[in-house]
């Protein structure tokens, strides 16, 4: 067995043994990180002249969904 599959198997064991509260918290934490990293870099991309379509393609979502989420300024707190 290669080292990589060992690591994957270890992770699988860890994922199965984490209790639901911990596992769900981890999933929530990953989502929070994704939101913050996405918001920061969508803003960067816009400043660098990327179109909504290009940003949507980079994120694997539609132009509309990224524009709806980040297009309207002034609602930023």
């Amino acid at each position: 067995m290669s080292k990589e599959t060992d690591t994957a198997a270890d992770l699988g064991v860890q994922l199965r043994t984490a209790d639901p509260a911990t596992g769900l918290r981890a999933a929530g934490a990953l989502r929070r990180i994704a939101e913050l990293v996405e918001a920061t870099h969508v803003a960067e991309a816009r400043r660098a002249g990327w179109s909504w379509e290009q940003i949507g393609d980079a994120l694997g979502v539609t132009r509309q969904s990224v524009h709806t989420k980040y297009g309207k300024k002034g609602t930023d707190v």
Binding site: D10, L11, Q14, L15, A18, T22, G23, R25, A26, G28, A29, L30, R32
Partner: peptide
């Protein structure tokens, strides 16, 4: 800290 602890528990 709770977030980091939970992530560590699932191997992140």
């Amino acid at each position: 800290a709770l977030d980091r602890g939970a992530l560590k528990a699932v191997g992140v």
